[in-house]
Write a protein that binds this DNA or RNA. Structure first.
Lengths: 114, 114
DNA sequence: GTGATACTTAGCCTCATGGATCACTATTCG
DNA sequence: CGAATAGTGATCCATGAGGCTAAGTATCAC
């Protein structure tokens, strides 16, 4: 798992932008053209296209051009990569927080924000 | 849910760096001091500290100083925010991919990578 | 109180990101 | 063909991210 990390870099970076997350949400409802996707945003088309490219290069979406229209669709497998990473993290800290930590954690916090 | 998006910006941006993800993985095994955390990395301490700050400001970790040592610990709730977003996404595209898509998806891929 | 330790602050440098504009190509429509 | 449409390519620009060094501030150990 060498460039697995590089892949995550790209994915998380792509997700770290509200425009791109909005595009993903929209695409979750089904494929759409670049123009359609751009409509809700005030920015210029070339600027918007960069976001599309970012999403595509990170593997979060797939696109294909037919005639003069480029259609974008979500690529679910990439989100699976994120879920895998998340699950791994949770696995570790859940395992260990079931041991003797409750007590240590208590000691380190002045008061309990729960 | 207005600044919920801003929060995600910070979290995803923080996760989009291998150094910071490595720190998180390490912290998943339990709290550690800044110095300890920095050891595996070749970069200078001030550079490393910026990563710690990024993690803290995004809410992914919590830190506290005692004497001259600053101890860092993971903040599980923040990962929950990511999971919430992910789940929401999946919910939408899973709902709709249970309809007539299987067929369309087939048509768009040359061969099945499963 | 001197010296080592563990961070911190401040400043600098370089490169990437997110935006804009302007000019251009390739389709499609009449 | 000619005009409108849909997306590109090429720059440019300001800001911010991620690295560095050098100097500073508290602790802690003796």
């Amino acid at each position: 798992m060498d460039h697995y990390s590089d892949r995550l870099d790209g994915i998380f970076l792509a997700l770290a932008d509200p425009t791109r997350r909005a595009v993903l949400s929209r695409l979750a409802g089904g494929p759409a053209s670049v123009g359609d996707l751009a409509k809700p945003f005030t920015m210029a088309l070339p600027s918007f296209l960069k976001h599309i490219r970012a999403l595509e290069e990170s593997g979060l979406i797939r696109t294909s051009k037919q005639g003069r229209v480029r259609t974008c669709a979500i690529a679910p497998e990439s989100l699976a990569a994120v879920e895998t990473w998340l699950a791994a993290q949770r696995a570790v800290w859940e395992t260990r927080s079931d041991r003797l930590d409750r007590f240590v954690t208590r000691a380190q916090q002045k008061d309990d924000p729960t």
